[in-house]
Design a binder for these strands. Structure first.
Lengths: 188, 188
DNA sequence: GGCCGATGTTAGCGAGCGTTAACATCGACG
DNA sequence: CGTCGATGTTAACGCTCGCTAACATCGGCC
């Protein structure tokens, strides 16, 4: 993993996630980004090729991680418990990384073309892990319908960043799990 | 309603919604905005005080509309059918105005302070309409938990713009209604 | 016919942007 | 000790931005 090698890169990526989530990619300048980690703007070019590259690496990392961990959880022989494992992991990730979830959801269009296509490929693969589990769980269902349901479910789970709410992390996790599972069980 | 008086204003607001949704507020220039309605950039200042004002009016209109229509639907004496009416209306609105939903969800921070506070007030009022109906439906439930559930439900319903999917409008509406109702019924 | 407000245009401003260039510092290592 | 790569800095570039100024057009109205 690239970001683990150089701590400065990881620091920048973390700060960039927060800033991009709060103000949007175009709303954050290179100067802002440097200042957030105690540097001047141009110093960033010692670590990234440009502003685009920061976003691209961020989204590549996270979409690869979602796909990898998703594939692991979806592999269980029992589709019911595989679905619960997917839900548990996605919810934990969303609650622990609200900024990453937000940026991942909103800023794909600002990634340069080649890397954007790779990210989209990974995102689609993650969705298909969920679709596969649900189709095993409900063999009669239409794949298009299930795919739309999975997107809606992600909308529910990823709403986390906006409702900072008064609930504890565990209470929130349990609430989201129950709602999402019920919503998916309602898909015929 | 301000925007109904002047057709040019309405035209600009419509085009701005599409552009802001696709590229983000900071990703759209005044020139882009003018070009989208067949004008040069500076011509916009004949209709709005500035770029901020376009966004502010857009979000004020939509949040007032959500609050008003929400209050109407929530007023029914039977909380069960009130909830279904809220769901039906919100889903129809989201399916018919995906760009407005997206901008409403993402760009509040770019509205100048005074109008931003008014918009937030309206948004909170809309949420509370839903919370009120749900609390009438399940009198024992915790208000904080219900509020978090409503936010999660909005995340599900507003996921529409991202899943352009192969489903027809009616099929999508019915799917979202079923999932959302099941998700909310799972909240104890 | 002549004024006038509404609604456009082009030209240009000051500021901020992403980026590059040139130079400083400093720890590692022969 | 001297060199060198890694990692900073400040200065400056070309460009685009939001916005204003100055001027054009044109339909409605006394």
């Amino acid at each position: 993993m690239v970001s683990a090698v150089n701590p400065r890169r990881a620091e920048i990526l973390g700060a960039a996630a927060e800033l991009f989530a709060r103000r949007g990619f175009h709303g954050v300048s290179i100067g802002d980004l440097g200042r957030a980690v105690g540097l001047t703007g141009p110093a960033l070019y010692r670590h990234f090729r440009g502003k685009d590259a920061v976003l691209a690496e961020m989204l590549l990392d996270i979409s690869a991680r979602l796909r990898d961990e998703g594939a692991r959880r979806a592999a269980g022989p029992d589709p019911g418990s595989a679905l619960d494992a997917l839900l548990r992991w996605h919810i934990a990730f969303a609650l622990d990384n609200p900024a990453l979830i937000t940026v991942h959801e909103r800023e794909l269009d600002n990634v340069p073309a080649p890397q954007r296509h790779e990210i989209r490929r990974l995102q689609r693969a993650y969705v298909e892990e969920w679709v596969g589990v649900l189709l095993r769980l409900r063999p009669g269902a239409s794949p298009e319908r299930v795919r739309a349901a999975v997107h809606a479910c992600f909308g529910l789970l990823n709403s986390t960043p906006y409702s900072a709410a008064g609930l504890s992390r565990d209470a929130m996790a349990e609430l989201l799990h129950g709602m999402a599972r019920a919503a998916l069980d309602a898909v015929t």
